[in-house]
């Protein structure tokens, strides 16, 4: 039973990480209606940026900020270079999907050229372990969970209560209508992508912390797990992203204990496939998710 509770503790951490990346993906999907196959690599860029910042500064906080900034820049670049040229042309949606795949390939291999293929050791947060109820957490894990909660709560509040947040939601719901009513839809979309990159970059930083080492495929290996969390929760809404992240994160870590850690990704993938085939709107998805089916 101890193993189970430890697994749950670790699962919550995985869920926190996933929640950040998935919320980022949901934001992107909300405004652009496309799955971004370079999302995992934005995480990797965040992780490497944190690594690069750690050299001169030796501060976890500065590492996190560097990851967030690099993630934002990368996500904005992905939107401007890979999504927007095809979205505006109104061409086949698959063209934009293929272009994000090409982007993923390029990002991974640029990182490979710069940092090499060997794993790069990543700094960790030292600290004692703490019991919370039956669960065992390290200081690092508590920091991760705390950061994830604060960031997502902040995002949620921004979307819900500020003018810009409301404008972004308007663009996500009715792009043409919001443009007609005078909202700068193009700029808001760029802003949303940058914000999604902040979340994704931090997720990458967290992934680096938990993995302890960086390789250029770090984020890409996580891509489908992010998709799994997004689809299970119902892609395109923040509450769903949290819920999906929790299910997938816990599912993976519990499976690692009871099946084998070699197959924990398989569990996430099976959850993903099953959800798409059986309930494509996600467990949380409402009416609005149905239209994502269009080719």
């Amino acid at each position: 039973m101890t193993a189970f509770f430890n697994a749950v503790g670790f699962g919550v951490v995985t869920a926190a990480l996933l929640a950040l990346a998935t919320t980022g993906l949901s934001l992107q999907y909300g405004v652009s209606r496309l799955p971004n196959f370079a999302q995992g690599d934005i995480m990797t860029v965040g992780a490497y940026a944190a690594y690069a910042a750690n050299g001169p500064f030796h501060s976890i906080a500065i590492d996190g900020i560097a990851a967030a900034l690099a993630g934002a820049a990368m996500a904005w670049l992905v939107y401007m270079a890979l999504i927007r040229p095809f979205a505006s042309r109104g061409t086949n949606r698959l063209t934009a999907v293929v272009s994000t795949l090409a982007g993923s390939l390029i990002i991974q291999d640029v990182l490979l050229i710069i940092f090499g293929g060997n794993a790069t050791a990543f700094p960790t947060i030292q600290g004692a372990t703490e019991h919370i109820g039956p669960f065992l957490f390290t200081t690092e894990q508590l920091v991760i969970i705390g950061v994830a909660l604060v960031v997502i709560a902040g995002l949620h509040a921004t979307l819900k209560f500020t003018f810009i947040g409301k404008a972004v939601r308007a663009v996500a719901d009715h792009r043409d209508l919001s443009r007609v009513s005078g909202l700068p839809a193009g700029m808001l979309t760029q802003l949303t992508w940058a914000v999604s990159g902040v979340l994704t970059g931090i997720a990458g930083f967290v992934l680096g912390l938990t993995a302890g080492a960086l390789v250029p495929t770090l984020g890409f290996d996580y891509l489908l797990i992010i998709f799994a969390a997004a689809v299970v929760g119902g892609i395109g809404n923040v509450g769903g992203a949290l819920f999906g992240a929790l299910i997938v994160g816990l599912g993976m870590t519990v499976a690692a204990v009871y099946i084998s850690s070699d197959y924990k990704e398989v569990v996430a993938l099976i959850l993903l496939i099953a959800t798409i085939l059986i309930r494509p709107t996600g467990l949380f998805g409402g009416r609005s998710s149905a239209r994502r089916f269009a080719v």
Partner: peptide, 28 residues
């Protein structure tokens, strides 16, 4: 199974997942 239910980008996601599952099993 896949084509009956999904097309477009969801099909890409499902097929990539299938590949990763196969890869994991062939490796592990």
């Amino acid at each position: 199974i896949a084509l009956r239910r999904v097309t477009g980008d969801y099909f890409a996601i499902v097929t990539l997942s299938v590949t990763l599952i196969f890869y994991t099993f062939s490796d592990q």
